[in-house]
Design a protein around this nucleic acid. Sequence first.
DNA 1: TCTCTTCTTGCAATCGATTACATAATGTCT
DNA 2: AGACATTATGTAATCGATTGCAAGAAGAGA
Lengths: 341, 341
Amino acid sequence: MTSKTATLQDVARVASVSTATVSRTLSHPDVVSESTRIRVAEAVRATGYRINRAARNLRTKRAHSVLVLLPDLANPFFSTILEGISRNLSQRGYSMLIASTKQVHDSGERLIDYLDDVRADGMIILDGGLDADVLKSLEDASQADRVLFACEWVDGTSFPSVRCENRKGTQAAVTYLHDLGHRKIAHVTGPEGNVLMHSRKDAFIAEMTRLELALKPEWIIAGDFSLAAGCLAAQTWIAMEDRPTAVFCASDQLAMGFIAELSRHGFSVPDDVSVMGFDDIDLAAQFIPALTSIRQDRLMIGETAAEMLMARIMTPDGDHLESAAVLPVSLVIRESTSSPS
Amino acid sequence: MTSKTATLQDVARVASVSTATVSRTLSHPDVVSESTRIRVAEAVRATGYRINRAARNLRTKRAHSVLVLLPDLANPFFSTILEGISRNLSQRGYSMLIASTKQVHDSGERLIDYLDDVRADGMIILDGGLDADVLKSLEDASQADRVLFACEWVDGTSFPSVRCENRKGTQAAVTYLHDLGHRKIAHVTGPEGNVLMHSRKDAFIAEMTRLELALKPEWIIAGDFSLAAGCLAAQTWIAMEDRPTAVFCASDQLAMGFIAELSRHGFSVPDDVSVMGFDDIDLAAQFIPALTSIRQDRLMIGETAAEMLMARIMTPDGDHLESAAVLPVSLVIRESTSSPS
DNA sequence: TCTCTTCTTGCAATCGATTACATAATGTCT
DNA sequence: AGACATTATGTAATCGATTGCAAGAAGAGA
């Protein structure tokens, strides 16, 4: 155990072959003969050789890592997605770098600076709120195929994306509430300008129309996915003279805030009003009452995103690739919804 | 805007100086003259030069990045800590890599493989459950000063660490419950073998003894920090014939699970029993009832961890460095606790 | 004016792995 | 046996930034 790290040279010397052969043995085992493969493997073990990634990255012009950009590291919604991404990447020997879009802004760096030859080969963005012109610079630099959006996306850009069936999930939610007997259904939306917010709101309106349900403008309550916005929405609901009997929230956090605030004012869910969320985050099942929600498989979102991005990185000229994956959602019925009394 | 990335050579040519001068201008601006500094800056702008990190990393034998190892990416407790780490690192031009200890195990890689010259210069471990012999290999390779534990740690190892005042927090919790008038206080613990679990349990027992409160063995309920364990603990509590009037849980998640399960069985908090958590995660304030908890400043934990690790990386021979930082906690009183009825 | 610092700058080796090209060794077919 | 295809290996250039050493320029002091 010397304190110095062994290099390819050392391995080559021990195995009595050239560095070229060692390198080939390691990265293309099929092109060398059985005997040298064994000898080199032995030498690697003996020297305790570990590859110097900087050298390889320099030579191959690959960073062997992927950057994930999130709006907010502290948001638990993303963690499972990260788990999925990381799982996929690490089995390919790639690493996952993390940065938050907030930091990108604060540090004044341009997004493209992160697509350094060595920092990252590609990037997965989980924030649809990015400036269009920031993204423009990526498209201009024809780096578009090294960038992929997951969950959210930005309209008018050409980046591939992974998302869930927002429309279908919303339809399922409204239909379910309708089947329970609800006729007056409200919707608490995500933040203004967010693509998911629009996607779900539009689908909500469409489905209400399809079911020929009345839809007062005030039943669309503006929110922003957060617990706090849910609380505010609850106050709005309480203040209504003609209250909806069911509320479909655009996120679980909204639904939880909504229910929490209601409960503080003496209302009970689902007795006084049925409440649904979207996402089915871990906590949804443990909440009181357990939340009826639309489930997104976040692990799969992450794995699919990594899969798609890597496919593009590996074959930069592949036009045959799907440019969008839409993953299924499912209705999870729990205790926060019931027939109207 | 050429599609090729500009190199130092290009900048040097445009600025009519040598590559050495450009390099110096960029990394040691003080050793070059004012005039060349300006000329080089101009050339950098003109060429759109961005440094090739692989080349630099190869030459300097630094990865310019730090690896963070967590037990579970999906655990929201860690996200704010990551935010703190990332914030500190990025302002130094370092990147943050993330991996989960689970993956390290699955992939069969040894921990030391991650401390590659180029993968990471150091690592912050948020998992005290790592095998002692796995860590041993790091110490043997005298890489101990490039590793730092945060939140958790492993007894018997010499790695520096950042942690919160677990003992003091526990004391504060018990004292507070005592002050409210509670005399029968139970504790739901973390997972067996976890250092935090022991630290908090021991402090709990010590404080109960100091206050001369009776402590039945059955009032120490084994858990594991999770919501599910909290539910089980609640069932245990319900089954007791002599029920404690207050329960101090070793984590907020435990407390939430405990309260949720209680509520499913018709018990009310804090009327039937006061419940406290530990950590003060984001959700604690929004829970119903809002959770009384011991607050850890997770952002600061992250920032301190990064700070300490970087100090060690920068001056590998600094014996003067603190080997442990203990950050303050504070009691946050909300609605889940009250005087016993 | 000449010598000696002090400040800038350039030259060129270097970090460690990859890979195009050349060469040697082996096997195949007529 | 000779010509050719195939496989295995070595040689050496290369990726792009950093830095020890040396040399030139500028200024200080006698």
